[in-house]
């Protein structure tokens, strides 16, 4: 039993990290008042470009992750153009972006021949004896660099959003774009920045999925995690630390599935695979029932801004 728990806990970070990174990115974007339904697309783009680097350039996992983040940010400019400059409905824009990313990654990866080719990917940071410590070793010290970077990253985002002028401006744009505009803050520029920055983190999450966890590219491999991350942000009420907690919760559930199968309990595999989605749905219902789920939502979320609007 204790083996089971150790194995399970040791696997939680790998499952939780993509959620945590994606949710952090979405928080940045949504704090600036831009709904981000495109997460699933950014995950795919990040995942594919990460593998692309490993297969096309060579075994440089760090470079692969940087490129994953960068490609998602690049694609997010299309989204920004649509919803900030051209003021397209953000639901339509977000969906269109997911479909674009699905089609694009499918075409590029197939033509480049990246599909179903295993890579070495990201390896655990060697910490010598620490990893050998019983129980705590596997749980705490046999992880790759991104896992160790997660908590500082959450702290950084929480600090920047809450305790810097940049964060104040970003939140102002999401909460009161008219007020921000009157204060001389470039609403459009801030939103472009928040979209690109957020997409970079989601892309990093995607890169981690392929380079760090699966170590392979399969079409559509994000498997709805982007949507779960969107729900997670609502659950976290747009707060970075709560997003980390939520990511651990979801990662914990997901990490449990292969563990149960590994100890030989015969469970209907596909029914078990439904659980993350059902759990997400249950959590969202719970939030709605428990309190006014939108009370901490950025007030201008999903609303395009235009100064010279006159009715």
């Amino acid at each position: 039993m204790s083996d089971f728990i150790v194995n399970w806990l040791a696997n939680v970070p790998a499952f939780a990290l993509p959620y945590a990174l994606a949710a952090l990115g979405l928080i940045i974007t949504e704090k600036a008042g831009v709904l981000s339904l495109g997460a699933e697309g950014f995950l795919l783009v990040g995942a594919m470009s990460g593998i692309g680097v490993l297969l096309g350039i060579g075994d440089h996992p760090a470079l692969a992750l940087v490129v994953a983040a960068f490609s998602a940010a690049l694609l997010s400019l299309v989204y920004a153009l649509l919803v900030v400059t051209l003021r397209v409905n953000q639901v339509i824009g977000g969906l269109a972006l997911v479909f674009l990313a699905q089609g694009m990654t499918g075409v590029i990866a197939t033509r480049a021949g990246w599909t179903n080719r295993p890579v070495d990917g990201l390896q655990p940071v060697p910490l010598g004896g620490l990893g050998e410590v019983p129980v705590l070793g596997p749980i705490l010290f046999q992880h790759d660099i991104l896992v160790f970077a997660a908590v500082p990253l959450v702290a950084l985002v929480a600090h920047v959003l809450g305790r810097t002028m940049f964060g104040l401006r970003l939140r102002a744009v999401g909460d009161g774009p008219d007020a921000a505009d009157a204060a001389g803050i470039g609403v459009a520029a801030t939103r472009y920045g928040a979209i690109a920055l957020g997409a970079a983190l989601v892309g990093l999450a995607g890169g981690y999925l392929s380079v760090g966890v699966a170590k392979i590219w399969v079409e559509g491999m994000s498997g709805g995690r982007g949507w779960i991350a969107v729900a997670l942000v609502i659950f976290a009420r747009w707060q970075p630390w709560r997003a980390l907690a939520g990511a651990l919760l979801f990662g914990g559930i997901e990490a449990l599935i292969p563990r149960i199968a590994a100890i030989g309990v015969a469970l209907p595999q596909y029914l078990v695979l439904m659980t993350p989605y059902l759990a997400t749905l249950a959590v969202m219902i719970w939030i709605c029932l428990r309190h006014d789920g939108t009370s901490l939502e950025p007030r201008a979320l999903g609303i395009a801004h235009m100064r010279e609007e006159r009715r």
Binding site: D175, A179, D181, A182, R299
Partner: peptide, 10 residues
């Protein structure tokens, strides 16, 4: 302004 340019959450 007539409609105050304030961020209500701040």
């Amino acid at each position: 302004h007539q409609h105050y340019k304030l961020v209500k959450a701040f």
